[in-house]
């Protein structure tokens, strides 16, 4: 089946397509997140190695932290596509991704603080993983701020795309802040991400919740990109023909 992808690079054909996909992704998100959390709370032991029941924060903490990092890469990919092909839709996708990415980063820091208080006895520490995650939050905020500071869309799209690309340097820092090859080189408070040591029921629940978070992010990013299209294309005829649904 040959799909003409460039057809969907025009806002007028992407808008209705996105509208059809939103309920699908939202339903999948609800089913996966509820199912994953049910499994994670009721079908798992009360301890994870030396951690007591507070380890259950893991489901939302890991899911939001992964999303925070991946969405940044997704955002940069859209921004780069925009710079190469000069397609309006790519820039709109990049800017729609930023706020959801910032929310995911904030959630990972929030849930991490509550987990840290129980397992390390501190809400916050200037440990490499936490510090780099905080910088990621500032990068998202910087991208959003820069975009809203420049009124001309074409200029703000390109300027913020370049900022996003420069900020990509933080992603390997976040990754290696706990997965560094030589433990003597980085002393971090944060646990290593060692999926092998996690009990399989907990791991399954965690991965299902993460899949649900992906679906949620797809849904809200598409919702936001539809709003961005309406804002930017309000002068066009096809937008004027749209009806308000009751």
């Amino acid at each position: 089946m040959a799909i003409n992808w460039f057809k969907y690079s025009s806002p007028s054909s992407f808008y209705p397509l996105a509208g059809k996909m939103i309920p699908v992704f939202m339903t999948l998100a609800i089913v996966l997140i509820m199912g994953g959390l049910y499994w994670g709370f009721f079908e798992t032991p009360d301890v994870l190695s030396d951690q007591k029941q507070y380890y259950r924060i893991i489901y939302v903490h890991v899911a939001s932290a992964w999303m925070a990092m991946w969405l940044y890469v997704v955002m940069v990919a859209w921004a780069v596509l925009g710079l190469i092909f000069n397609t309006r839709m790519s820039y709109m996708m990049a800017s729609a991704t930023a706020i959801t990415g910032a929310i995911m980063t904030a959630l990972s820091l929030w849930t991490g603080a509550f987990w840290g208080q129980t397992s390390w006895g501190t809400w916050w520490d200037w440990d490499p993983r936490m510090t780099s995650q905080l910088i990621l939050l500032f990068l998202y905020i910087g991208y959003i701020a820069l975009q809203s500071a420049i009124e001309d869309n074409r200029r703000s799209d390109r300027a913020s795309a370049v900022l996003a690309m420069v900020g990509l340097a933080i992603v390997p820092v976040i990754y290696y802040s706990i997965n560094c090859p030589d433990p003597n080189e980085c002393a971090s408070l944060h646990q290593e991400s060692s999926l092998k040591r996690v009990e399989s029921n907990i791991l399954i629940a965690m991965l299902v919740v993460t899949a649900g978070f992906w679906m949620y992010c797809f849904a809200v990013i598409l919702m936001r990109v539809r709003n961005i299209i309406l804002l930017r294309e309000s002068h066009t005829q096809w937008v004027e023909r749209l009806e308000v649904k009751k």
Partner: peptide, 18 residues
Amino acid sequence: MGGYGFYVWSSMGMVLFL
């Protein structure tokens, strides 16, 4: 949650809220 309810539900609650 074995005495850790405050921490677990504060995390879950904020996720649900946002």
